[in-house]
Design a protein around this nucleic acid. Structure first.
Lengths: 211, 211, 211, 211
DNA sequence: CATGAATGAGATTTCATTCAT
DNA sequence: AATGAATGAAATCTCATTCAT
């Protein structure tokens, strides 16, 4: 009954090109300032075609969240939950993060989310609830487990989790906001090796020696 | 000199009200999506008056950078350069930062800068050069000095400086982007006390025990 | 002659389905607001197929006039010209009209024509010339004949003809515009019986008793 | 406190010009096909100004209903309710109507309402409820009163009321839809004099003499 | 000085029409 | 023959900026 003018594969590939173009335009201009014309032009399609695949600018934005952020999230949470020890979890994390940051799409999305967070409170709060807090909670639980097993002595697992994450945010922002084409790139691998050393060192730190 | 219809003080006060309104509108909507009408309405003045004091939306944006960001910068750099030891510098820094974050205006400005960094590359790169890199450089020099004096053994002062700064960025973003009215606020003081402990612990960390 | 892939009958049936769908869409949305997609969807065909049978939206519109309005016109004019007396003609007319109105397609077309008359002045003026004025002229001639035969005493046959027609327009508009699903329908038969009585009564009315 | 850039009078006058222009554009093109640019151009103002006074195309449309239709309605209903007899009421009505039709704005509005009735079901049904049905009800009540006083013998007052109204609709439509610049105009006065005669004649018509 | 009415360029979105499949 | 993907012109609506009052 239904004849297909083009294959499903071709459609999916076209959709991906649109998402890629949207990511770059939103990243460069912000959600509001980005123009649908430019997104269409960037992927070599007409504006009408863009609207054939995404009903609105906002739908396109949501599509980005789905395809860029969601996949990473699952991986990280699983990594933390499956880890046999805090040491191994932090090792895995500090090895994985630089790759994700260097790949480039997540820093761009984070930059977009920060810039337009107030324009889409539902999206940003959903992201916070489903991605950020879940990851922070998974980290905190990991440290509570390792505290109980005697592996670590972490006084405030929730705050500690945030310090673990801080350089992730920092480097994403750096990559997306401050890095310039001409500059020597930030040595992400070395940064996270150093971060790991500090974290390892702190895992069994005596909490009484307050400053 | 002609007689003034209104005093310079009244003018300055009016200008400040406009800047405050602009900070909030830019923060809530982003530079592009913020409307001059709304900024005018927020400070109880007419749009015409706004243009009497600032020639354009962009001029207003520049005004924000000048009044919000610049003052902090000087203070921090001076604090680091004048510190007699790395330990004392970090103590001072981790005490000062939570105050600045909690005050609220800097996180808002940072959020705006991130969102619209690509729209104003000159501004953002100027900010990077004059504020960020100068602060990072001051930190790195501090650690080189303390290494030489034997106080510390920091293998990579430049990377270490970034890890010092990471929670500042994290908490600013958290404050500006994720914090919600209903939520219990992030305990900034405790976070930076913990951060300080980790940093102190790391100052004399043995760099050979790599992961 | 080439062999046909589908029969002429199947083609005609398909064309009719398109016209029916178009009548309803034009009626519900007006010519401009009606979408070709919706017309296609309403008759279960694709947009491409629609264009295979009608070259443009306007062609489709013309097709409606031809198939809906023209057939009625011939019947009415013939009815009036063949009538042996004014009384019998009015009887026939007031019996025929309620059926046509109740059938529904003509009121819909009239509503469309009124709504878009200025967009298609040629069509509407053609319709006026060929349908309306011809019918009004046939009526007026009928009354002139009956005046001469002594059957009636109608002072102004042309104006009288318009008053004969007025309830036709009124009920068509009512049907097409004001009638709602929930309402008790307008009793067309009774309305036209009453109309007939008034007309009969007026056929021999003494014209001198002016107000 | 509030300085006015222009006077309230000037504003009202400008608003009226916009409404006049809108009436003509909607009348000529229909609601959907009419362009806001053209309406603005027709009253010598910019599109932006139009939106300063009316928030949307639909608001403008509503403004027309308010200013064109509402005033007439009150007058007619009052005329019918205050009439001492059916004869006098019909005389007053058939004298008033030709003026209103000839003035031109109401026929235009009626044409618009018919054309776009399906696009604005709430408006058209509100109009029906508040204008049409109220007028028809006032007429029917008038005839019931005159039946009781012995002045008239009208078998079906509700249907009779519709026949009273029919030529109003007919002539409005004729004026708005079929009348052309070159044509001799329809003699409204004579038409309604004839209509009045027929109505008067029918007021005491013997209902038994059915056709 | 201060105001807010006016402007018009530019944004998102729609849809008649075409044409490769 | 039939389909529906693709196009781009055109519509509504917004808003930074200007300027008469």
């Amino acid at each position: 009954m239904k004849k297909r003018a083009i294959s499903d594969d071709a459609k999916a590939e076209k959709k991906q090109r649109m998402l890629d173009a949207a990511l770059d335009e939103f990243y460069e201009k912000g959600f509001t300032a980005a123009r649908m014309d430019d997104i269409a032009a960037r992927c070599g399609l007409s504006k009408g075609t863009l609207y054939l695949y995404f009903n609105s600018k906002e739908t396109l934005f949501n599509g980005l969240i789905e395809t860029v952020a969601k996949p990473k999230q699952g991986h990280i949470v699983h990594m933390l939950q499956a880890a046999p020890s805090a040491h191994l979890a932090l090792t895995a994390l500090t090895e994985f993060v630089p790759q994700v940051i260097a790949e480039g799409r997540l820093p761009k999305l984070i930059k977009i989310l920060i810039g337009d967070c107030k324009a889409f409170p539902e999206i940003i709060q959903g992201y916070r609830k489903k991605v950020i807090e879940q990851a922070l909670a998974a980290l905190a639980e990991l440290f509570e487990r390792s505290n109980q097993s005697g592996e670590t002595r972490i006084a405030q697992p929730a705050l500690f989790a945030r310090l673990v994450v801080a350089p992730v945010v920092l480097s994403a922002i750096w990559q997306a906001v401050f890095a310039q084409d001409g500059d020597p790139p930030l040595d992400l691998k070395a940064l996270f090796v150093l971060h790991r050393q500090m974290l390892m060192n702190a895992l069994t730190m005596d909490p009484t020696e307050d400053a």
